[in-house]
């Protein structure tokens, strides 16, 4: 915590002076709390795999089964994030800009993936999409097997991520003044042009944040996925399940290795996206 204190001291070299007070206090507390709740526990995770040595770590995470599971987790999460970006934007737009009966209800529903325990979500989704379920049966008839395949994983991960995009967009869309849009319209821009040139750029940072969060959340998801995934090694086995399996074998180091890789990749993705967002915020 001494580092936090040192960081909190206002020094002109690494920050620009501001007229506002409370920088030391707020940043100090931020870093203290962040360290206690997140960073120190994660350090325990990151230190663990090195009992194996570097070569052991590399061998652990490049085993075909581990690679296949990582590919599935990251791939399905990416597909889910793309789906959520497109549909999440539409949903947020509709919820903020239009009025229609039942809007409140729909708005409330968006939070469902947060409120519903992931295990229940998994059970409900697998009941829906199983070959004898309400949606699984018609899909089966179309020749699509949803539950117990990688497609099932995508469905669960899309479900998990949706609120992130919508809820990140809503406040920004709310705050977005319509003056610019009006100006664009009076200058003769079509509605689509206005959206593309005026609205979309303003929304982009929030949109990126939202999809990044949806993606990051989906990568590690466990509870809702295991019920619908099928869990076949090399085909429909997700990385968090592999972690559990390794724990069952008392292979703490192996479990932590897979965990560290997942953590590292998600961290990098988040870092890049946040950097991008900061860049765009500056441009505006």
């Amino acid at each position: 915590m001494s580092s936090a204190g040192a960081l909190a001291l206002p020094s002109t070299s690494w920050r620009t002076r501001s007229a506002l007070p409370g920088f030391g206090l707020s940043l100090g507390f931020t870093i203290f709390y962040l360290s206690t709740v997140v960073l120190i526990p994660l350090a325990a995770l990151i230190i663990r795999p090195w009992e194996l040595g570097l070569s052991g770590f590399v061998a652990e995470v490049t085993a075909p089964r581990v690679l296949a599971a990582l590919k599935l987790s990251f791939g399905a999460a990416a597909v889910g994030a793309v789906l959520n970006t497109v549909f999440g934007l539409i949903v947020a737009w509709v919820l903020v800009r239009y009025r229609f009966p039942g809007k409140r209800l729909v708005d409330a529903l968006v939070d469902l993936p947060f409120a519903l325990p992931t295990a229940v979500a998994g059970i409900a989704l697998s009941a829906l999409y199983a070959p004898n379920g309400w949606l699984g049966a018609p899909l089966m008839w179309l020749g699509v097997k949803a539950a117990y395949t990688p497609l099932g994983v995508v469905i669960a991960l899309t479900f998990i991520g949706l609120p992130f995009v919508v809820r990140t967009l809503q406040p920004v869309l709310n705050d977005l003044s319509r003056d610019h849009e009006e100006a664009a319209a009076t200058l003769g821009a079509s509605r689509l042009q206005t959206f593309r040139r005026v609205v979309f750029p303003a929304l982009l940072p929030a949109l990126i944040t939202g999809s990044a969060l949806a993606f990051a959340r989906a990568v590690g998801e466990y509870g809702s996925v295991i019920f619908i995934a099928g869990n076949l090694p090399l085909r429909s086995e997700i990385a968090p399940l592999l972690i559990i399996i390794k724990l069952e074998e008392f292979d703490y180091a192996g479990a932590a290795s897979v965990g560290v890789v997942m953590l590292g990749v998600s961290f990098l993705i988040l870092l890049i996206l946040n950097g991008l967002q900061a860049l765009m915020a500056k441009r505006r």
Binding site: L42, L45, V219, G220, A256, L263, S266
Partner: peptide, 21 residues
């Protein structure tokens, strides 16, 4: 932006891992 990323970190940590730590 590094700090923001650290704050986001728990989102990207698998729930299994958050218990495990």
């Amino acid at each position: 932006s590094f700090l923001i990323t650290l704050i986001d970190l728990p989102f990207s940590v698998s729930p299994v891992i958050s218990g495990l730590v």
